[in-house]
């Protein structure tokens, strides 16, 4: 079995201690949460972190709590399985459970954390597209205090984010969705389970006065560009007309044009482009039908 090469290891007990270690460390320190991605890359020799900071001893980072009437806060160390099974999230943000169920296998979901999934900044993240369309904001702590940023502006490239040395994600805030809204997350992998997405689409949609009038729509696409991306042009196109089969088809062409997929081991560029259209159309129809059947108020 491959063994890890030696590294420095820290187990801070508080957030402040973690920030202090991260800011003070001369070596590049990597954050360890679930370890489902980090440790594999270390074993494969893709990365050789000089230092690991294990965050799991810090209490208070793994809860799912309502924040007044405005929304819900998910701690960064919350596991994907906890998100999948949270009754609070199922009540207000069903999409989160849908995305969580699509990630890896049950054993991976028991270990992997929300903060880890976001911080890894994988273009194929199962969580990011849904978080983007739910207008997630990240709470970040660092040597210069706390701040909040929208997830949409968090990713800068594959594996890279706006996080500065010493900074870490502490929680994710999700505002409550508006009335008459529906959402869907659809993913395509190879085979029926346990695959990294070769394409995925999340849509959040709020209806206006009629069942075909869209008041607000957010579309995010994963695995089809360098970062989990919001499809602004497609959203504008959807808003420009009422929901009909023809309009949905037109929007599907737009989303394929807006993404920039590549050919890799999992799929070719052209297949990805075709699939993003199919996933988009299906997700839009599904979120539309969910919006129509949703209660008028939350």
């Amino acid at each position: 079995m491959k063994r890890l090469t030696p590294f420095s290891y820290f187990e801070p007990a508080t957030l402040a201690e973690a920030v202090e270690i991260l800011s003070g460390s001369k070596e590049k320190a990597y954050l360890l949460a679930g370890g489902t991605d980090l440790l594999i890359r270390m074993k494969r020799g893709e990365i050789a972190p000089p230092a690991l900071v294990n965050l799991k001893r810090i209490s208070g980072l793994s809860s799912i709590e309502r924040e007044g009437q405005s929304g819900i806060r998910i701690g960064a160390l919350t596991t994907i399985a906890e998100i999948e099974h949270s009754s609070a999230l199922r009540a207000s943000h069903t999409l989160m459970a849908e995305a969580a169920t699509a990630l890896g296998s049950p054993s991976i979901r028991n270990l992997a954390t929300l903060g880890g999934n976001i911080g890894r900044a994988s273009p194929a993240s199962d969580m990011a597209p849904s978080l983007i369309v739910l207008k997630a904001r990240l709470n970040i702590s660092g040597p210069r205090g706390n701040k909040q940023v929208g997830l949409e502006s968090f990713f800068t490239g594959p594996g890279t984010t706006i996080l500065q040395p010493g900074e870490l994600i502490t929680s994710v805030f999700l505002p409550d969705p508006a009335a008459r809204s529906g959402a869907a997350y659809l993913k395509l992998g190879r085979g029926g389970g346990m695959d990294c997405a070769l394409g995925c689409v999340a849509i959040f949609l709020t209806l206006g006065n009629t069942d075909t009038e869209v008041k607000e729509v957010l579309v995010a696409v994963g695995a089809c560009s360098a970062i989990p991306m919001r499809a602004n042009k497609t959203e504008a196109l959807i808003l420009s007309g009422s929901l009909t089969d023809g309009h949905i088809q037109e929007a599907a062409m737009a989303v394929a044009a807006e993404t920039s997929p590549i050919t890799d081991l999992r799929a070719s560029e052209s297949y990805r482009r075709q699939m993003v259209q199919v996933l988009f159309s299906r997700a839009l129809k599904l979120s539309w039908s969910r919006a129509r059947s949703s209660k008028d108020t939350h």
Partner: peptide
């Protein structure tokens, strides 16, 4: 061989 892990050398899972 580029897909040298079971993440990318896909085997059927229970879902298939």
């Amino acid at each position: 061989i580029l897909n040298d892990t079971l993440a990318d050398y896909k085997l059927a899972s229970m879902m298939d």
